[in-house]
Simulated assay, not measured.
Amino acid sequence: MAGPVDATPVVEAQKRADPELKNVIEFLRGKNGPKVRRGILNGKRVDYFKGKTAVRTLLSPQYQKLKKVPVVKDEEEAKALMVKLLPFAFFLRTDRPTLATPPPPGTPKPLQLAPQQSFDPLSYYTWFYDGSPLYTILGGFAMVVIMLAGVMFPLWPVKLRIGVWYLSIGALCLIGLFIALAIVRLIFWCLTVVSMKRAIWIYPNLFEDVGFFDSFKPGWAYDEPKKKKKKRVPGTSSSKSSKKSVDGPVDTVPSATASGTESAPVSDVSGLRSRQAATIEEIDDDEI
């Protein structure tokens, strides 16, 4: 994780934090924390988040279930807690400079440290804390053990090697069955497209972001096309009555009312027609 020119003060500042504040940081850096984005700071990839997402995270039910953390009841207390965390340099405020040539979509955004470190819900903050080092140590130790076990596979007992072989064959069969199912459902969909008015998908949720068992529910469903929502521009009306009133003969419009107020001239009616035509063209351009 990228840091300032001298990273030692950052580490020392993090060590001075109270246990309750460290618990808050562990929560924010965990899976229930604010959504992080990828950026580039000082030539290194970093994680950063927006201030208002951290405020919402502190107001979430997951945070309220925690113990040994400061109590947060409303948005003002959440902002005050973020201000209290900022001096310990677990995260620092960064800015996204405006570039002459914007980077392609999906690529990390360039960042730079803000000269004034303060908390603002609309600003961005970069993490200088990667979580508890215990998990990093345990993960590294597990990787070493797995690599040694793989290298020493010829020295394993015969029964253990046979069991691993059966497990690998079973895993390959499951993968092959999944691929075959995907091919069969695609062929069936193609047949229904040609022979029926509405195509049918077998296991329509197979590739959706759902649980394992939910991927096979329901067994089949019609292929419903996604409907595009049309944008409506304020000031326009789709009723036939308004259209008839505009397209009707201009001669029927009276020149004056009994009170002496003049009605809209013919030029205003023609201008209304042109404005309506321009509005319809703008809607078509937006939909394209």
Rank of each mutant, 00 (worst) to 15 (best):
P154A: 07
T279Q: 12
R29P: 00
D251H: 12
R96A: 05
D6C: 11
P102I: 05
Y222Q: 14
E224A: 10
D268E: 13
S242K: 04
F141K: 12
A2W: 03
A17R: 08
S241T: 07
E20D: 12
Q64G: 09
W220Q: 08
D214W: 00
K65R: 15
R275P: 00
P70N: 08
I288T: 11
G260Y: 12
K243E: 08
K50N: 06
G260E: 04
A180N: 08
R96G: 03
F212P: 01
L167R: 03
R232P: 00
F49M: 01
K68T: 03
R185E: 07
E26K: 09
N42M: 02
I280F: 08
K84T: 14
V72T: 10
G211T: 04
K44L: 07
L191E: 11
S215K: 15
D74W: 09
V269M: 10
W201T: 05
V145F: 04
V145S: 00
P121G: 13
I283D: 03
V246T: 09
S118F: 11
D247W: 11
F91Y: 14
D247N: 09
L92Q: 14
K227D: 02
L111A: 12
E12M: 14
F212G: 03
P110T: 02
I280D: 09
D74C: 10
S237E: 11
A182L: 09
A54E: 08
P110Q: 10
M147E: 12
G30S: 05
D251K: 13
G219I: 14
G211H: 04
P4C: 01
G51H: 03
S274M: 13
F188C: 06
K79G: 02
G176S: 12
K228W: 04
S123E: 15
D209F: 07
I183L: 11
L85E: 05
K243P: 00
A182Y: 01
S132C: 05
A221D: 13
S274I: 14
R273I: 12
S245G: 04
F213V: 14
G248Q: 13
I175D: 05
D74T: 10
V266T: 15
T252H: 05
L272Q: 08
L99N: 08
K230G: 02
R38C: 04
M152S: 15
K68M: 10
G271N: 13
